[in-house]
């Protein structure tokens, strides 16, 4: 019997072969860049471009910087409003378009349409729509007697306008996951509840909602990861203003790296941001942990 030179007795679980591409991808595109960023966060760059070891100086300066802490607060507040809003709205629209009916395909497509636009285009569109002088939204508000609003140009409305923009684009996408979750609920459970005389609201609270914990947890964590890194509309529309109202951490990181030419500090901010996202995601997962 011929012996293959590479043959050996060691048996490898076939699951590893299937996992390998994902592990390689994760390592090359995630773990290695993250490691490089963490190492880089302990360095600075001299004026002549040489790397200089700074130890924990980058972290010390960031954590004592009131402006960065304020940015972190704004980013968390944005997430505190945008994430639950997107979860609730995506679940609501998923429930609306869940059952088959006339034109339901059209409704689903319309709801999904904003996702197909790039975030940059979305930002440009809403910047024009909300323009205080030329924007059609303000023209309508003026026509109905409400009066013109500043939206992105108003310190008190800019963060809310960003929440609106992120939600307008995000809801259609998250709706898909909610729909998948709704389809996974066995119809027999609803049937049994209906026979027992449960109302629509009772079926929603006691059948739908408990069985939607996993999709809801996924959407919440994924929305958190995306909204924590919210950047393009801030860069395009407000540049962190007015008066720091939309000074998100990601914008500050960009400024630090590319305008203030301090890559080490920017990497330290990114590392802190990574930790914050991890902690928030873990808390969310724990809160929405399924019993099974």
């Amino acid at each position: 019997m011929p012996i293959e030179p590479w043959a050996c007795d060691m048996k490898i679980n076939p699951a590893y072969y299937f996992l390998a591409p994902a592990v390689v991808g994760l390592t090359v595109f995630k773990l290695i860049p993250i490691s490089v960023a963490i190492v880089g966060s302990f360095y600075g760059t001299s004026l002549m471009g040489e790397s200089v070891f700074r130890g924990i100086d980058n972290y010390r300066s960031i954590l004592s910087d009131p402006d960065l802490l304020s940015s972190l607060g704004i980013t968390l507040l944005f997430n505190l409003i945008a994430n639950p809003l997107q979860v609730v709205l995506s679940l609501a629209v998923a429930l609306l378009v869940f059952r088959p009916g006339p034109l339901i395909g059209l409704f689903r497509s319309v709801l999904f349409l904003p996702v197909t636009l790039s975030l940059v285009l979305t930002a440009l569109i809403w910047n024009l729509l909300f323009d205080p002088f030329l924007g059609p939204v303000n023209a309508i508000l003026e026509a109905v007697g409400i009066g013109r609003q500043g939206f992105f140009k108003d310190e008190t409305q800019a963060l809310g306008s960003m929440v609106w923009l992120a939600t307008w684009r995000g809801v259609g996408y998250w709706m898909l996951f909610m729909l998948a979750g709704l389809y996974a609920i066995p119809e027999s459970l609803h049937e049994a509840a209906r026979i027992d005389g449960a109302s629509w609201w009772q079926r929603f609270c006691h059948v739908t909602l408990p069985l939607m914990r996993r999709p809801i947890a996924f959407v919440l964590v994924a929305a958190t990861a995306i909204n924590m890194l919210f950047f393009a509309p801030v860069y395009i529309i407000t540049a962190g203003g007015p008066n720091g109202a939309t000074d998100f951490v990601m914008f500050r990181i960009y400024q630090t790296a590319f305008n203030y030419i301090d890559l080490g500090r920017a990497l330290a901010m990114s590392t802190i941001m990574l930790l914050v996202v991890l902690i928030v995601a873990l808390v969310e997962l724990r809160l929405l942990r399924s019993e099974d």
Binding site: E155, P242, N243, N259, I261
Partner: peptide, 22 residues
């Protein structure tokens, strides 16, 4: 000044805010 890029960028954002009422 060697750091005019930073000086200009930060002051620019301040002027923008002041225009809008800060």
């Amino acid at each position: 000044i060697p750091g005019f890029r930073e000086y200009e960028e930060i002051l620019k954002l301040a002027f923008r805010d002041i225009q809008q009422g800060a």
